[in-house]
Design a protein around this nucleic acid. Structure first.
Length: 508
RNA sequence: GGCCCCUUCGUCUAGAGGUUAGGACACCGGGUUUUCAUCCCGGCAACAGGAGUUCGAUUCUCCUAGGGGUCACCA
């Protein structure tokens, strides 16, 4: 590693929503950059206009923003190495392709897509599984290596469509030093003469990414494993262009929770967990792909769980703030093998973060949820309630279970009624209610005292009284401390609920 | 199929020649609790297989198997 300032990039193509594998790649880039005091840039790779999807770029930026892993340079963030969108850099690539042709490392090819499809089909029928445009086959194709020079000139001048391909050596081991995997060696005889410039004059990913990374001063390329097979090609491109290559680190993929294969968007609805950072509305169908944000996850939890999918600090600490991650993260503790996504662990992370949140913060969030259901609760009640409810929730929305703190029960748990409700219960409840009314101050600890002395005085057991009182007050057979609930409800509400409840249960 | 990558409990992983192979999630017990949840305590459970190298391999090498990725004028 040189002493140059670290500069890494996240370079998604705006073809749709960013899936969490991509988010993790962005996160690792971000953490690596921050850990080394470097730059994290965002570059949009939209050289293929056919695949452009409206809104995808905005989606990417909003996702990173929500997660708090924003670039400090790049598309939407400014910087002096722009533009950061490849479609706005179109004039910058051709000269390098020309340079390659001049140095003998590239050539024009006039074969049409149809011809190539055709030849591949024929090869397939003949038993060749993957036909390559390579050092052997290029000799029988229409290109500037086989065609007479004046013919090539003529075609070029006529404006005949052509592509520019890289000319690979016949047989040469290309070595890629991957930071995570070590040396990866591929022989050029296994590779093909990839297209660098398409017939529409635009560069392919291979050319554009090398040129951009070089021009933008990228020092480390941290990307998904799906790029590993083409890494040797990129190494060659740097060499032929006379540039120093950045260091490469290929991240293993995130796999499906069950079964095999990499995580795809369909796994989400099957497994009941989001695969995307935030909701995404598919432009054509209007379908919504679920996101972590809308599912109720905290961004810190998502960052934390994603960081641990392939990386670990070597200690037993599992809860890391973003700052702690920046501090601890480095590529040498990133694993080589693919990790199956574990929805249970994801929930666990959220639960951990929910517990750490202040009641004040949770009250804000919960108020939001309540508002969407048309419920308005005063602040102090809300804060108290949240303190009571948070221990039993994974998501803020789970606290809706405690709706009875704000609204009278609409029904009474049948199982509890059947099991606990006896003929003498109404009398006991009324009596008990009256006693509790005398509690001064009207707080949980005091209510508990009175409640217990009532039991002793009347020689009653907890099990015979408590569930019934809970039933009257909340309609449920279980829940958090009843004394706390009573405190929150207040005297008046408690009394009316006891009265109404007795009526409804006895008549129902 | 060719090429490349990977392989420790069900899952995420620690381990970098000698460990009772550790932690977390999940699961199962026990305790606390009016109850549920929390919490505490405990349990279950792994080095894919085979050859080497070595006094000794989870750890190093090779092979096999399995898994994954990639083979476009897409990224």
């Amino acid at each position: 590693m040189s002493n140059k300032k670290v500069r890494v990039r996240f370079a998604p193509s705006p073809t749709g929503p960013l899936h969490i594998g991509g988010v993790r790649t962005a996160l690792y880039n971000y953490l690596f950059a921050k850990h080394h005091g470097g730059d994290f840039l965002l570059r949009i790779e939209d050289t293929d206009q056919k695949r452009f999807v409206e809104g995808a770029e905005e989606y990417i930026i909003e996702s990173l923003k929500w997660l708090g892993i924003e670039p400090n340079e790049g598309q939407g963030y400014g910087g002096n190495k722009g533009p950061y969108k490849q479609s706005e850099r179109m004039g910058m690539y051709r000269q390098y392709a020309d340079q390659l042709i001049e140095s003998g490392h590239g050539y024009y090819a006039f074969d049409t897509s149809e011809e190539l499809v055709d030849i591949r089909e024929k090869a397939n029928k003949a038993g060749v599984s993957s036909w390559k445009y390579n050092h052997i086959t290029r000799n029988s194709m229409k290109n500037s290596l086989t065609l007479p020079k004046d013919e090539v000139e003529k075609r070029l001048q006529n404006g005949d469509p052509y592509v520019i391909r890289i000319k690979l050596p016949r047989e040469e081991d290309v070595r890629v030093n991957d930071t995570i995997r070590g040396w990866v060696v591929v022989n050029t005889k296994q590779m093909d003469d990839k297209v660098l410039v398409k017939n529409d004059g635009l560069p392919t990913y291979h050319l554009a990414n090398i040129v951009d990374d070089h021009l933008m001063g990228i020092t480390h390329v941290i990307r998904g494993e799906e790029w590993l097979p083409s890494a040797p090609l990129h190494v060659l491109l740097y060499r032929y262009l006379g540039w120093e290559a950045p260091e490469f680190a290929h991240l293993s993929l995130i796999l499906k929770p069950t079964g095999k294969g990499k995580l795809s968007k369909r796994d989400g609805d099957k497994g009941g967990f989001p695969v995307f950072p935030i909701n995404y509305t598919v432009p054509d169908s209007g379908d919504i792909l679920a996101g972590y944000r809308e599912a109720g996850y905290f961004p810190e939890a998502v960052v934390n769980l994603l960081a641990f999918l392939g990386w670990n600090p070597g200690t037993t600490q599992e809860i890391f703030s973003l700052g702690e991650l920046i501090n601890s993260f480095d590529l040498d503790r990133v694993g080589k093998s693919g990790a199956k996504f574990d929805p249970d662990k994801a929930k666990w992370y959220n639960q951990q973060y929910l517990r750490m949140k202040s009641n004040d913060f949770l009250a804000d969030q919960f108020a939001e949820v309540l508002r969407t259901k048309g419920i308005d609760v005063d602040r102090s009640t809300l804060v108290k309630s949240v303190g009571l409810l948070k221990e039993r929730a994974v998501f803020v929305e789970d606290m809706m279970e405690g709706l009875y703190l704000f609204e009278k029960p609409t029904s009474y748990d049948e199982k509890t009624v059947k099991k606990k409700w006896k003929d003498q219960t109404p009398g006991i409840m009324k009596d008990l209610g009256d006693k509790i009314m005398d509690s001064e101050p009207f707080v949980a600890s005091n209510i508990e005292l009175i409640f217990k002395s009532y039991l002793t005085d009347n020689e009653l057991g907890m099990g015979a009284v408590m569930p019934n009182l809970r039933l009257l007050l909340t309609g449920k057979g279980m829940g958090p401390s009843l004394f706390e609930i009573i405190e929150i409800l207040g005297k008046k509400e408690m009394t009316t609920r006891i009265e109404e409840g007795i009526k409804r249960i006895t008549n129902g």
